[in-house]
Computed example of a mutant assay.
Amino acid sequence: MAVESLSGRGATRNATPSRFNLEQREVEGDWLDQVEALDGFAPRRTTVTVEKPRSILTRNRSPDIGFDRSVNPYRGCEHGCIYCFARPTHAYHDLSPGVDFESRLFAKPDAAKLLHAALSQPGYDCAPIALGTNTDPYQPIEEHWEITRSVLQVLVETKHPFTITTKSDRVLRDLDLIAPAAHEGLAAVAVSVTSLDPRISRTLEPRAPAGRKRLEAIRQLNEAGVPTLLAVAPIVPQITDHELESIVEAGASAGARAGFYLPVRLPHEVAPLFRAWLDEHYPDRAAKVMATIRSMRGGRDNDPDYFTRMGGSGPWADLLKTRFDKAVRRYGLGTTKTVLRRDLFRAPDGVQLRLL
C-alpha cells in the first residue's frame, strides 16, 4: 500500500489523543489514493460526512467572550491552521485533532432548518448570533455545500443580528445578504489576518487564502458598508509577531473600522501538534518560541483561565499590548466593536422557510 503523504496539510502527524483512552489507528488509503500514487505516495484526501444534529444553536457562558450563542455549519476545517484551538473537538468523534481535523470534515446541511425552528420558539430572546467561532464558515467546502449561506438567509429573513469571523475572502460571495443586513445595523464581519508573508502562511495555515486576499475582502466589505474588523489573530511569538505593525497598517488602509489581537493559544492536543510543527518547520527557534509562549501563559503551554487566556500575562504579553495600542493610534484603527440592533427581529412565519 502506498505511503500517505501529508504535503499541503498543517499538522505533521495524526496521532490519536490519549485523554479519551482511544486506541491508536493505522491510516488507510482507498483504491483511488493508490491509483493516483504512482510515485509511492498517496495524498491525504478530504472527505465530508453529513451530520444530523438535533439543534444548531450553541450556547456560551464564558464571561470573557462577547457573544452567548453561535452557529457552526461544519466540524473540522480544511484550512489546516496548526494553531486552531478547535482541533481537540475532533477527539470526541474518535478522530485525530491532527490531520483528521483538516481532512475528515462534517457538514450540517439541516442547519438553516434547525435555526428556523430555534428562532420560532415562543419566548426566544434575540441576541447576536456568531458564525465562525469554532471552525471557519467559509472554508473551501462551503463553495459546494452553501450551508453558511442558507443560515444567513434565515437570519436576513428574520432580521436577526449576526457576526461573522473568517480568514477567507469567500465571504464576499454573500455580500448580497450581508450588506443589506449591515445597512440595517444587523451585521458585522471580522477578518483574521495572521501573516502577510506567503512563506509563513504556507505551513502555518496551508489551505487558507493568502493575507492579501483577506485584505481585499476587508476593502470590499468596507466599500459595501459592512462594519469590518481586523483580527490580528493569533500572534505567534518569534514567528509572526514582527508583522504586527505592518498588518495593522494594511488593515487600516483597507478600511477596517476597528481591530483586535490575540496571542496564540495551545489547549489540550494543540500543544503537542504545535510543537511537532515547530520541530518540522522552525527547528532553529522551536525552543525559543515555546519559552516565549510559556512566559505569557504562567509557565504552561496554555492558560485556560478566563480573561488571562485571551491576552496572556507577563512582560511579553504587555509588550504585545503596547505595540498593538501604538499601532492602532498611529494608523487610525479603532478598537470599538459595532453594537448590533436587536429590535428589528421578527420570528419566522409558520414552520416553513420562505427563502429555502
Rank of each mutant, 00 (worst) to 15 (best):
Y92C: 08
P180T: 10
R294M: 15
V232C: 02
H160K: 12
A118C: 04
L95A: 04
E102F: 06
T322K: 10
A181Q: 07
L344F: 04
H281W: 15
G334R: 02
D136S: 10
V351I: 06
C81Q: 07
P234W: 04
L175D: 04
E26S: 12
E26I: 13
D303V: 11
R44C: 08
D94G: 11
A179T: 10
P348D: 11
V193L: 00
S55W: 10
K337S: 10
R61F: 11
L215I: 01
P198F: 14
W277M: 10
P315W: 02
K337W: 08
L229T: 12
V189Y: 00
T58S: 12
Q34W: 11
R9L: 15
Y306L: 06
L340S: 07
R285K: 15
M1K: 14
G132M: 03
A111C: 13
L152G: 08
D125P: 02
I164E: 12
S62L: 14
V193N: 00
P137V: 10
Y92P: 01
H90Y: 02
L57T: 06
Q34T: 09
Y306C: 07
R59V: 13
R257S: 14
S70Q: 09
R257G: 15
P198Y: 14
R149F: 07
R329I: 00
F20C: 03
S62C: 11
H144L: 05
G80S: 05
R199L: 14
A256P: 00
T16Y: 05
R207I: 05
C77W: 02
P234A: 04
C84F: 01
A256S: 03
A117V: 02
D279N: 14
A179Q: 10
T240W: 09
E28H: 11
V339H: 07
A111R: 14
T338D: 09
I178K: 05
I293H: 08
G29Q: 09
A182C: 13
R294G: 14
F106E: 09
H268G: 04
A291F: 07
R346L: 02
Y138P: 07
N72M: 06
A254M: 02
P234F: 04
L355P: 12
V48D: 00
T308D: 06
D318I: 00
E78C: 00
R297N: 15
T158K: 08
C77Y: 02
S295E: 13
P206M: 09
R219W: 05
V191L: 14
P53V: 12
E23G: 14
I129R: 11
K321H: 13
A286R: 10
P315D: 03
A208G: 11
R275T: 14
V191P: 00
T322R: 10
S5F: 08
A91C: 04
R323A: 04
G66N: 09
K52H: 15
D279Q: 15
L105A: 06
T89P: 03
T135I: 03
W316A: 15
E78G: 02
S5Y: 09
A208D: 06
L57E: 06
I56Q: 11
D100T: 05
A347T: 13
I239N: 12
R87C: 09
L215E: 01
L215M: 06
T148W: 09
G211Q: 06
I82C: 03
C77A: 10
V191G: 02
G314L: 10
Y282E: 05
E184D: 15
K159W: 00
I200F: 04
V48P: 02
T336Y: 01
